[in-house]
């Protein structure tokens, strides 16, 4: 009985998928992202100095100059599957993190990436998954990769009895720690992840 209901569920899901696919022109279903939900999630961040996600897609003209200027090629332009977010820049921090060279901020012609200092950048906040982190579980107490790679060592990240602790006030969310973290959890995240908690901030008129 249980298996049957699950089967039905699968069918329902299948029908839903087909319906969504047929509306495809309006909502490009691509993994979890849809045409009108922001692609900015955990470890998916906007470049430094980005304006609030509420007006980001309307302000950005998709000129791709930030993508072109980035010396590490960490900024990726989203493709057309992302609907209204197509063409906007995104950083996949676990692939290539932002090294805070601040070149993209200087070239943005629309002010979508606003001039900002390196240490004032707030792309997100590093959050340690204490269940996944080896050091916090005392499995491998010597790992402190996140601490070692942080560009604002002892300011943004500190060691508390050899365990890393993020100082929220100073974390820029550049993602170097996420990139360096050797732990990969079941859902593909790391033991330290960048949450874009500032992306939905108020719009400065």
């Amino acid at each position: 009985m249980k298996s049957k209901s699950r089967k039905n569920k699968g069918r329902r899901q299948f029908i839903k998928e087909i319906l969504a696919g047929s509306v495809g022109l309006l909502s490009f279903r691509y993994k979890k992202a849809s045409a009108i939900t922001s692609p900015v999630t955990t470890n998916r961040l906007r470049p430094p100095g980005a304006v609030s996600e509420r007006i980001f897609p309307s302000k950005c003209i998709r000129c791709g100059r930030c993508v072109e200027v980035c010396p590490y090629n960490c900024i990726v332009p989203l493709d057309i599957k992302e609907g209204i977010y197509a063409g906007t820049p995104l950083i996949y921090v676990e692939d290539i993190p932002c090294y805070l060279c601040m070149k993209c901020v200087e070239v943005c012609p629309t002010g979508t990436l606003q001039p900002i200092k390196q240490n004032e950048t707030r792309m997100g906040l590093a959050v340690i998954d204490k269940h996944a982190c080896k050091t916090w579980n005392e499995e491998l107490a010597l790992c402190r990769t996140c601490y070692n790679v942080c560009p604002f060592k002892e300011t943004a990240i500190k060691l508390d009895q050899l365990r890393p602790v993020v100082i929220e006030e100073y974390c820029t969310g550049c993602g170097l720690c996420t990139h360096g973290c050797p732990v990969v959890t079941k859902d593909g995240k790391k033991a330290i992840n960048i949450e874009p908690i500032y992306s939905q901030g108020p719009v400065k008129w």
């Binding site: 003209i61 000129c63 791709g64 100059r65 200027v69 010396p71 070239v107």
Partner: peptide, 18 residues
């Protein structure tokens, strides 16, 4: 020039050019 040689004097294309 921009991505491989990091020469940023000319940048962008006809959406925005510097």
């Amino acid at each position: 020039l921009n991505s491989k040689l990091h020469f940023n004097f000319v940048q962008g294309w006809f959406q925005s050019l510097s």
